[in-house]
């Protein structure tokens, strides 16, 4: 059960980050040079894979598992809560939804304004694609390492992330400029809830908690957190709507 949840969590987290990275790569490719944008992307993906392969096994070898789980749990809690907070604010209408089309247009306009140097490689496209993929990918690396290491399933987590990268890459190449159709906030909410559920579970294990139902407790945590999150957002939006209605009534 927990393996399935882990695969879903890593896949969704990687897919969300990939959509954001893809927007940057598409902008760099279409406005500057496809070849250089792909080269930048390839180098960034290799650097990220090297990070996972370099850090992952050494952490397992040298850090005691209970300490590792506690630290990873705390990191997942902080990371997941940051994602969830943003998603909740977007659901409540307090923060603008991430609009990939708008970001794409802005990035294309910015890159077109940079003068081209007569060279076989467009260094701007290379650097922009590299930075975009590497920075977005770092979050994926952290999710893969934390979830994979604490569950002793680094390979499964890595394959799941790679699958997300490939699938989003293929879909992105087909739909190109329709990335705004991706339900990013729903995906971010799901990932946020999954990350804090895994975080609670692993931090608790690191502190010596024996969870009822063992790994099955993760599913219970996901349901509890999802329910409370929805209650808060729904409660807030309905109070806000009532307040606006009353005020309009008082003014009218």
């Amino acid at each position: 059960m927990s393996t399935t949840v882990l695969i879903i969590a890593v896949f969704l987290a990687s897919a969300v980050e990939m959509v954001e990275a893809l927007t940057i790569v598409l902008a760099a490719g279409s406005s500057r040079s496809w070849r250089s944008a792909f080269e930048g992307t390839a180098v960034a993906v290799l650097a990220l894979a090297a990070l996972i392969l370099g850090i992952g096994p050494s952490l397992v070898k040298y850090v005691p598992i209970s300490s590792l789980r506690f630290i990873i749990g705390a990191l997942l809690l902080i990371f997941g809560l940051q994602w969830l907070r943003k998603a909740m604010l977007r659901y409540a209408g307090l923060k603008a939804l991430h609009n990939e089309d708008e970001i794409f247009e802005k990035e294309v306009a910015r890159l077109k304004a940079i003068p081209t140097v007569n060279d076989s490689r467009d260094s701007t496209a290379f650097v922009v694609a590299f930075k975009g993929v590497f920075l977005e990918g770092l979050e994926v690396v952290i999710v893969v390492l934390t979830l994979g290491l604490s569950a002793h399933k680094l390979l499964i987590a890595s394959v799941s992330a790679l699958a997300a990268v490939v699938i989003v890459g293929i879909i992105g190449a087909i739909v190109a400029k329709q990335l705004s159709k991706v339900p990013e906030n729903l995906m971010k909410t799901t990932v946020g809830i999954m990350l804090i559920s895994f975080g609670t579970f692993w931090a608790g294990e690191g502190l010596g908690i024996k969870w009822p139902g063992s790994d099955g407790a993760i599913v219970f945590l996901i349901l509890v957190y999802a329910m409370f999150m929805m209650l808060i957002v729904k409660g807030f939006t309905s109070v806000q709507a009532n307040y606006a209605k009353t005020h309009r009534g008082a003014i009218g």
Binding site: R85, A92, L94, I196, G204, L207, V224
Partner: peptide
């Protein structure tokens, strides 16, 4: 009480983080 304290604490944290921004 370890598990309930941890779970309630996490719920309180995301509630607090949301309302701090509000």
């Amino acid at each position: 009480y370890q598990a309930p304290i941890l779970v309630v604490g996490v719920i309180a944290t995301f509630t607090m983080a949301f309302f701090v921004e509000v």
